[in-house]
Computed example of a mutant assay.
Amino acid sequence: MTTTRIGLKNLITDVPGLKVGNAQDENVLTGTTVILPEERAVCAAAIAGGGPGTRETDALGADKLVDAVDAVVLSGGSVYGLAAADGVVAAMGAKGEGFGLMDLPNVPKSPVVPSAILYDLANGGNKVWGEDTPYRALGRAAYVDALTARTEHEIGAAGAGFGARAGSERGGLGSASIVTADNITVGALVAVNCFGATRMPHTDAFWAYPYEIDGEFGGARPPADFKLDPDDWGAAKVNPKAMQAASTGRQNTTIACIATDISLTPAQAKRVAQMALSGLSRAIRPVFAPFDGDVVFVLSTAKQKLPEPNPLALARIGELAAGTLARAVARGVFEANKLT
């Protein structure tokens, strides 16, 4: 009997019609990730953190003119990292790609490239770049990387997660996928730079352990006698139980992209994005803090129709997105810390 399973690569690129590219700067200790649909795709975003940094998210509303995007960019660099989308827009525009109400001679189209950034400025590396930040070049490099048929991509210390921190340990870029018995594919890609901890206090077990498939992030489990102290945040950047004091600022943020091959309207994609946010709360504690800028995008590559009945099928996709995102968070942190 056919059962629900992870995709062939256990990456967001198991979703048909999608490529991913990464670029990073080891000297600056930062990076960028580009999610590139083969054709313009419906996209929505849900923002839950108290300190987000985004571009073009207002254009994604179901009541707005543009109903599809050309790419999604995730980047380090805080506000400077928003320039990564400039590199992608310029490269796509030069090829004549993007949105245009009509074709006019010598008038370029406008690529629609929503993006979100995380704060890795205080995580090491040489950030003394003056007026010439590295992010436009990183965005273009990640876009070129995606173009080279990148249906496989790096996770861990890669792309937008290259300079990330997850609580008090190294953060990273995570990805995961799921394929249902009736062949719905959902994937998740996430750059984990959270204020909270991804592991349960005083254990190696990830909060996302109930969702783990085939030991994909180490298989650690909490001890049988584990008891949660509600005020113990474990290896978060600040732990009130330990009476730690630190400057948190906007030095955090987890940014993610969900993709599915099911055709969604902008309103349906928005609902999936809102449901997918719960994947972050399954994998990170605390989450959506005032100094996190947590954002989740949803892309539909529209390779097959939404099964009937629509509301139930949509609920299935939203729940699959949440569980897959939780797994991707743990995979990103697990793979990044294998190197340390």
Score class of each variant (00 low, 15 high):
I117S: 08
I117Q: 09
L118K: 05
L118M: 08
L118G: 07
Y119R: 13
Y119H: 13
D120N: 11
L121K: 09
L121D: 00
A122G: 05
A122Y: 13
N123L: 10
N123H: 14
N123W: 09
G124Q: 09
G124K: 04
G124V: 06
G125M: 12
G125S: 11
G125L: 05
G125V: 13
N126T: 07
N126Y: 01
K127N: 11
K127I: 00
V128W: 05
W129R: 12
G130K: 12
E131Y: 13
T133R: 15
R136W: 11
A137S: 10
L138I: 06
L138S: 12
A141G: 09
A142E: 12
Y143W: 13
V144P: 00
V144S: 14
D145C: 09
A146E: 05
L147N: 09
T148V: 15
T148Q: 15
T148E: 13
T148Y: 02
T148G: 12
R150E: 08
T151F: 00
T151I: 11
T151M: 05
T151K: 13
E152S: 12
E152H: 10
H153D: 04
H153A: 02
H153R: 02
A157F: 06
A157I: 13
A158S: 13
A158C: 02
G159Q: 09
G161E: 07
G161A: 08
F162R: 06
F162D: 04
G163F: 04
G163K: 03
G163N: 10
R165P: 00
R165A: 14
A166G: 08
A166L: 08
G167T: 04
G167P: 10
G167S: 06
S168K: 14
S168V: 12
S168G: 11
G172I: 08
L173Y: 06
S175P: 10
S175K: 02
A176N: 01
A176T: 01
I178Y: 07
T180V: 07
A181M: 02
A181V: 11
A181I: 00
D182G: 10
I184Q: 14
T185H: 13
V186Y: 01
A188C: 01
A188N: 03
A188P: 02
A191Q: 00
V192L: 05
V192F: 00
G196V: 09
G196W: 05
A197S: 15
A197F: 04
T198L: 00
R199H: 03
R199P: 01
M200D: 05
M200V: 10
P201T: 08
H202F: 02
H202Y: 13
H202G: 14
T203L: 04
T203N: 03
D204A: 14
D204C: 10
F206L: 05
F206I: 06
W207R: 11
W207C: 04
W207F: 14
A208W: 05
A208S: 10
Y209C: 12
P210Y: 03
P210S: 03
Y211E: 15
E212K: 01
E212D: 04
I213W: 09
D214H: 13
D214A: 15
G215W: 03
E216F: 01
F217T: 08
F217P: 09
G219K: 03
A220I: 04
R221I: 03
